[in-house]
Computed example of a mutant assay.
Amino acid sequence: MQISHAASENQSAFLIAKKNACLGCHATNKKIVGPSFESIALKYKNDPNAQSFLKNKILKGGAGSWGVVPMPANAKLNDVDLSLLTSWILRGAPGEN
């Protein structure tokens, strides 16, 4: 049952990322415009504040963490979707197709 729940969460997070144009700049394992989700997960893996930081970064946008190219704000995302999306990113975006 846990595997199916995890797969469902991964699919939901992927759909949130797709719907909000995250996949135009990010991919699981390669840099596009922004860093790969695997690179993000690796960079923040030992940071206890990573989820909060990433939620804020996604919500407000900005630049500087990965270079000078700014990430646009995604202010329309609610906290539940932000939490699901950031958890998925911090796991390296498993199940992205």
Rank of each mutant, 00 (worst) to 15 (best):
S87D: 15
L82E: 00
A7D: 12
L85M: 09
N78P: 10
K30G: 01
G67V: 10
A6M: 06
G34Q: 04
H5F: 09
N74C: 11
A63I: 07
A27Y: 02
Y44N: 11
K76L: 11
W66V: 03
M71E: 02
R91F: 13
S36R: 10
S65W: 13
L23C: 08
A13K: 03
N78W: 01
G62P: 03
N97A: 04
A27C: 06
I16P: 00
I40S: 09
L85D: 08
A6H: 05
G34M: 07
A27H: 04
E9F: 04
L15T: 05
G34V: 00
V69A: 11
L77S: 03
G92D: 10
V69W: 05
K19C: 02
A93K: 07
V68N: 12
I16V: 10
W88H: 03
L77A: 06
A63V: 10
H26E: 06
S4E: 07
G62R: 03
K55I: 15
F53S: 11
G67H: 05
L77P: 12
L77N: 02
A63S: 15
L42M: 11
K43F: 15
G64V: 13
H5M: 08
Q51T: 04
G24R: 05
I89N: 01
H26I: 01
S87P: 02
L90K: 00
S8D: 09
L84S: 09
F53Q: 05
G64F: 10
G64N: 12
A27V: 00
K76S: 14
K45I: 14
S4N: 05
Y44T: 13
A41K: 03
Y44C: 13
S39Q: 08
C22A: 01
S4I: 05
H5P: 02
A13Q: 05
N20I: 00
P35Q: 06
P72M: 03
G62C: 11
A27D: 06
K31V: 15
H5E: 12
I58W: 12
S87M: 04
C25R: 01
Q11Y: 07
L15G: 01
C22D: 03
T28Y: 05
L54A: 10
N49Y: 05
N78S: 03
E96I: 11
L90R: 00
G92W: 04
E96S: 13
N74T: 11
G61C: 14
A50Y: 00
H5N: 09
M71D: 01
K43C: 14
N97K: 13
S65H: 13
G24Q: 06
K60C: 13
H5G: 01
A73Q: 07
P35A: 13
S4A: 10
L42Q: 11
N46S: 14
N10T: 02
A7L: 08
L84E: 01
I3Q: 10
G64C: 04
S39Y: 08
W66E: 09
N49A: 14
F14I: 01
A41V: 06
C22S: 03
E38G: 03
A93M: 07
P94D: 14
V33M: 13
L85S: 11
I58H: 01
K55D: 13
L84I: 13
